[in-house]
Simulated assay, not measured.
Amino acid sequence: QTPSGTRDTLAAGYWSNISSFIFDYEWRHFSFDGDAGTVVGSTKHRPGQDSYFPGVVFYSNLRFSWKATRLVEPFFALDWQNVTGTYNHSRHRYVDNSSSREVAPGVGIMFNINRRFSFTARYTHSVEGRNVPESNAYYVKFVYLWP
């Protein structure tokens, strides 16, 4: 990711690298898929302000599903993230309460309309969180695979 942009809320002000391992295991009646990864950023420098090294993000999003029929696939999901503390280089210390963690299980159902089109509905609710807004969300996903 690049640090450029016209708004601070959209442009982090530092470079970061997002690396993920993505997997998908398919069996006759079940599937297990997800990702695991990290986000590592560079030190944020702004003229006249302290320099900060953002916390390193570790995450995983897992899904275990049962292929009930060709059309219907209910699943359990688990999302996890952990962020190490932000380090203030100018003051040589970590920023108070800047590390965070969340564990959020969920349930959902995927409808495989045909080989190229699917629709998924999911609900996720956090069971543990520290220094982060806890998840309590509904998600909807439409996927179209073109040849």
Rank of each mutant, 00 (worst) to 15 (best):
T2N: 15
P3A: 12
S4Y: 14
G5L: 06
R7V: 03
D8K: 15
A11T: 06
A12N: 14
N17G: 11
I18T: 13
S19C: 04
S20G: 10
F21D: 04
F21H: 12
I22W: 00
Y25H: 11
F32W: 10
F32I: 09
G34E: 01
G34I: 01
G37H: 07
G37W: 01
V40N: 06
K44I: 04
H45K: 14
P47C: 10
P47F: 11
D50Q: 09
F53I: 05
F53Y: 08
G55K: 09
G55Q: 04
F58D: 00
S60Q: 05
N61Y: 04
R63I: 01
R63T: 07
R63S: 09
R63P: 00
S65H: 05
W66N: 08
W66A: 11
A68R: 10
L71V: 12
L71E: 02
V72T: 09
P74H: 09
P74W: 03
F75M: 00
A77P: 00
L78C: 05
W80S: 06
W80G: 05
W80N: 01
N82S: 11
T84F: 03
G85P: 00
G85K: 13
N88R: 13
H89E: 06
S90F: 07
H92T: 07
R93Q: 12
Y94I: 04
Y94C: 02
Y94R: 13
V95K: 12
V95N: 02
D96K: 15
D96V: 09
N97S: 10
N97T: 03
S98A: 08
S99A: 11
S99F: 03
S100H: 04
A104V: 04
P105Q: 05
P105D: 02
V107Y: 01
V107M: 02
M110H: 04
M110I: 07
F111N: 08
N112G: 05
F117A: 14
F117T: 15
S118K: 15
S118Q: 14
F119T: 14
R122L: 08
R122I: 03
Y123K: 11
Y123P: 01
H125A: 12
V127P: 01
G129C: 07
G129N: 09
N131H: 14
V132Y: 05
P133L: 12
E134Y: 07
E134H: 13
S135T: 13
Y138E: 02
Y139M: 13
Y139D: 07
K141A: 14
F142T: 15
F142W: 14
L145N: 14
